[in-house]
């Protein structure tokens, strides 16, 4: 009762990064709330996965293991989460704001009539006073999320309903193993008790998941190109420079839309969130939706021919010039000065 649950998503048979990010954050929140953190893993052949969940801070791991659950489909997964939550009565339940969490979360919250906050970028514990009712709520989950196309940030609470549910955007929370080795309790979900035969009316008949070769999240340096790079050919310069310095190439949505770069390189609200040591923004104006995905970079260099570009407000260095002139110079002087 009254614990914090993370519904873990699987990717290629292991726990997805987003869920490890949630477990890392959930550990801190559970400590603040003085409750346990429990992980729910649904799928098939789950043996051994509990270990990873413990490493990232779970106290209890629930395994719902059944051949019929191998691929995610909405209804049986919903039944399991709903019935388990009815039984365990968590105070908080977190999911990733991925296509999985955003399909499952609302269905579960509707069945439980509990509130669900979408696509959070920060979670805190705090209190709230309802002045009209003269009531103060302690230890609430403050769920912070962008809305209105990323133009505003709202803090949402669910004072009267448990579990307080939220989906959290991928990449915004750190993923970190606990310092001390840990273990905990493994519990089996009695799948047959929770799912109904009529839950299996949707079948996956084909799946093509593309293994993306792009690893933006792990890259220490990112060279990112925007619409101002001008063409796919000009993007080649960015790849050359990136290869030279061991960086990854990112892009703004305008560059992706223009066909200069592939979609899996997009950084920002509807792309990947990154926090590299160095972010070089080339021909990117710096709209809020882009900045939302890179504002935590340790250092930002912008290359832009417009001094007034908003990106310069968050840059450490603003180079005033054309991408096509500046990048070759950077390549040249990097080569000359590094050994």
């Amino acid at each position: 009762m009254d614990n914090l649950f993370v519904i873990c998503e699987l990717e290629n048979g292991t726990i997805a990064d987003i869920s490890l990010e949630l477990l890392t954050k959930g550990r801190k929140l559970a400590d603040q709330l003085g409750c346990k953190q429990e992980a729910l893993i649904i799928g098939h052949k789950l043996k051994g996965l509990e270990k990873e969940a413990f490493d990232y801070g779970a106290d209890v791991v629930w395994l719902a293991d059944d051949a019929r659950l191998e691929h995610y489909t909405t209804l049986p997964y919903t039944s399991i989460a709903v019935e388990l939550f009815r039984q365990e009565k968590p105070q908080v339940a977190l999911l990733g704001a991925t296509s999985y969490g955003r399909d499952l979360g609302p269905r579960v919250s509707s069945a439980l009539s509990s509130g669900l906050t979408a696509d959070c970028t920060a979670l805190e514990i705090g209190e709230h006073t309802d002045k009209r009712a003269g009531k103060t709520y302690k230890n609430l989950l403050l769920q912070i999320r962008p809305a209105f196309g990323g133009n505003i940030i709202a803090t949402i609470i669910n004072p009267e309903h448990k579990p307080q549910m939220a989906t959290v955007r991928e990449g915004v929370m750190k993923m970190e193993k606990c310092k001390e080795p840990r273990s905990g309790e493994v519990k089996k979900v009695d799948v047959d008790k929770f799912v109904r035969p009529e839950d299996f009316v949707v079948n996956v008949i084909e799946r093509h998941m593309e293994e993306s070769g792009v690893n933006l999240k792990g890259a220490p340096v990112i060279i990112s190109g925007g619409y101002g790079v001008g063409s796919k050919e000009n993007f080649e310069m960015l790849y050359q420079f990136a290869e030279l310095i061991g960086a990854e190439v990112g892009a703004s949505r305008a560059a992706v839309d223009a066909g200069f770069a592939e979609h899996d390189r997009q950084i920002g609200q509807t792309g990947v969130t990154v926090r590299p040591k160095l972010y070089i923004a080339c021909g990117i104006s710096g709209q809020v939706q882009h900045i939302a995905g890179m504002q935590e970079s340790a250092m930002v260099i912008s290359v832009n021919n417009d001094q007034e570009a908003p990106i310069n407000k968050i840059a450490d260095y603003a180079i005033l010039g054309n991408v096509e002139d500046v990048i070759p110079k950077m390549i040249k002087y990097y080569k000359e000065n590094s050994k």
Binding site: S113, S114, L116, N151, I153, T155, N158, P159, V288, A292
Partner: peptide, 13 residues
């Protein structure tokens, strides 16, 4: 069940 506690303009440091 959800209430908007606060809304802020996006400001970057």
């Amino acid at each position: 069940p959800t209430k908007v506690k606060k809304v802020e303009n996006v400001v970057f440091q």
